[in-house]
Design a binder for these strands. Structure first.
Lengths: 191, 191
DNA sequence: TGTACATCAGTGAACGCGCGTTCACTGATGTAC
DNA sequence: TGTACATCAGTGAACGCGCGTTCACTGATGTAC
């Protein structure tokens, strides 16, 4: 579509990054990775469909690369959350998680809703959850393990952002109110 | 595929129900309504592709009919929840909601994850949420409104069932543990 | 300095596929007279 | 009681489309000698 000069010799890998970017962008205009076509990605990058195969074995491999890049983003964002107190950090992390997901709904979908194409991707998901788990643990007495509570929190955040994404016409209360309703159960032992 | 006799005169509507059933079944083998093909539904019903058009204007109309039927199921299931005490009823309703979603993951997806094809469908969703809202209110002091808390609960349940569906290899704690972690915040005023 | 050659980044053209949808048709069944 | 006809439930065949993927090719750029 766009006219495009071939990269200089040795700079061939640049197209790889451009394809990952193009795919990430298109994921915001389409319902899930299955609905994203490799040909559309090539068009968006200004390149012939076959050129995708210079850098990716097939369509799942391209999607996997997108996931890797986007997981890295999310991880960095969560890790950068400020930390006045453990509870403030946990709450800020929840908000950051939701903000990321709501700002990049199509990309978030491919991270946590689509089928898993590679073991790497499962790994990334677990690592991201690890950040949340540590933040929950930091609020507990040293003996508490917090595993199930962190998972419950993760699932709750996931539900909030996916429902908001998929049912935008619903009269949603403010994000912080939802989080503050659900958060307390996850940082104290249940009565 | 299946050999099939034409319905008797006057019984033409039977095919409509068979198509809705076939589509519902196929939704369990496919990733979302967009990935379900009208031709596959016709094949499963043992009928030519064009026969679908005897009962539905197009593919979205078929999906809308599936939603209507499945929303009715879910509503009935939730409404039939036993009610020893308000809190017991709320908890049982949460479990019933999750059980339904986990038993029929593909159909649940089309109710709450896909794009909305008809205003009817939004209506159904709101009605189902109404059951949950009433159950939350029944646990409160008479003055409390409970709207945002019921929505938070709904979102949390949604997150639990969709993540479990989409990441089945993750080491999930028992469903009841997740629910019991998140439920308390929704039935008491926050500290 | 000149030139033959290897390599790199990418394209032209085509493949077979399943899809949603449309048009014209069929054959059995009930109904009017 | 017989028969012409309307209606009903469905099909045969085809349309144009975008898709993932493959094969053979091109033209510019750097390198060896």
């Amino acid at each position: 579509m766009t006219t495009r000069q071939p990269n200089r010799r040795g700079q061939g890998d640049q197209l790889r990054a451009e394809l990952v970017d193009a795919a990430s962008g298109l994921l915001e205009q389409v319902d899930g990775a299955e609905a994203l076509s490799l040909r559309a990605v090539a068009r968006a990058a200004g390149v012939a469909p076959q050129s995708v195969y210079l850098h990716f074995a097939d369509k799942p491999a391209l999607i996997a690369a997108v996931c890797e890049a986007r997981f890295a983003d999310l991880h960095t964002t969560l890790d950068a959350t400020p930390s006045a107190t453990p509870r403030a950090r946990l709450r800020a992390m929840c908000l950051a998680y939701c903000d990321y997901a709501l700002a990049n709904p199509g990309q978030y979908r491919v991270l946590f809703s689509g089928p898993i194409e590679s073991p790497d991707r499962a790994q990334h998901g677990v690592a991201t959850l690890g950040l949340l788990l540590d933040a929950v643990r930091a609020c507990d007495k040293p003996t508490a393990s917090g595993g199930a509570r962190a998972i419950a929190l993760w699932a709750a955040l996931h539900g909030i952002v996916t429902l908001r994404r998929d049912r935008p016409d619903f009269p949603w209360p403010p994000l912080a109110e939802l989080i503050d309703t659900l958060l307390p159960g996850t940082i104290e032992r249940r009565r």
